[in-house]
């Protein structure tokens, strides 16, 4: 379980994340939603130790993220930010294999290599393994990054807008993959998502943020309602139940 207590981030005088307290389950898919500037990405970066927090505390299975050994943490929690720009010229396979670094320290065992192969085929990258990342399209590159993070094989997998650059087919496949990782490998996948309908259909838990605060937390059926959409996004939308899922209509 990731316990977040009273986490705050401020730049200069303005607070981007204000006193968020929550606990993220050790298993299942958790989606963080909210309008632009709600502090979602900042929040995710802080609980994954990429960004120092101004105040507050985060523990992962009881380990404080600020004092825990970096290597031990890398075997427990992985994070992928959005907008990853790489200047290093690596092949897809090399990049994915670096996901095993916390385990292999650069000397991969056959078990490590099996993980690499599995991640590559999960993300449908079999035909691209020897291509350099700078020769790929945005969506292919995004899938390679996600393969790398999955290859790290951590209990907690944190992803900031993993559906970026993906077409509809790959976006659905990606969400199904996260669902399977949670159900079959009992991982905890924490996502920042912009598409509220994906969040509604695939999550066990939704956290809604606005103005740096956590404003709602609960199961999709409780969170995805007309009143909540109005409050969190300041948008009038219709919510319909399709095959047991709450679907938000906001295009018209």
């Amino acid at each position: 379980m990731i316990e977040v207590s009273n986490v705050t981030k401020s730049y200069g005088g303005s607070e981007v994340v204000r006193g968020v307290t929550s606990s993220l389950p050790a298993n299942g898919v958790t989606s963080i939603i909210g309008p632009n500037g709600a502090g979602k990405s900042t929040f995710l970066s802080m609980i994954s130790r990429l960004l120092p927090m101004s105040s507050g505390q985060v523990t992962v299975d009881g380990m404080d993220i600020l004092t825990a050994d970096g290597d031990a943490m890398a075997k427990k929690l992985s994070i992928l930010r959005q907008d990853n720009h790489l200047t290093a010229r690596l092949t897809v396979r090399d990049l994915v294999a670096f996901g095993r670094y916390p385990h292999s320290k650069g000397r991969p065992t056959s078990e490590d290599l099996a993980h690499v192969e599995r991640s590559i085929s999960y993300l449908g990258l079999d035909n691209l393994t020897h291509r350099f990342l700078d020769e790929l399209s945005g969506g292919q590159r995004q899938r390679a990054f996600i393969a790398m993070v999955l290859c790290q094989d951590t209990k907690y997998v944190l992803l900031d807008e993993p559906l970026n650059n993906l077409d509809m087919k790959h976006a659905v496949a990606m969400m199904q993959l996260f669902r399977r990782a949670a159900d079959e490998l009992s991982k905890s996948v924490v996502l920042v998502l912009h598409d509220i309908n994906f969040a509604s259909c695939y999550s066990d838990l939704i956290i809604a943020m606005r103005d740096g605060k956590l404003v709602r937390q609960g199961a999709p059926a409780e969170i995805v309602t007309t009143a909540n959409i109005q409050e969190v996004f300041d948008l009038e939308a219709r919510v319909e139940i399709v095959e047991g899922r709450s679907i938000v209509h906001f295009y018209l």
Binding site: G70, L90, F98
Partner: peptide
């Protein structure tokens, strides 16, 4: 390998425990 990882940037490096 450490230098290659560092070449991926600070976030990737931290994520991989270095």
């Amino acid at each position: 390998d450490r230098f290659t990882v560092a070449g991926l940037g600070q976030d990737f490096t931290t994520n991989l425990g270095l």
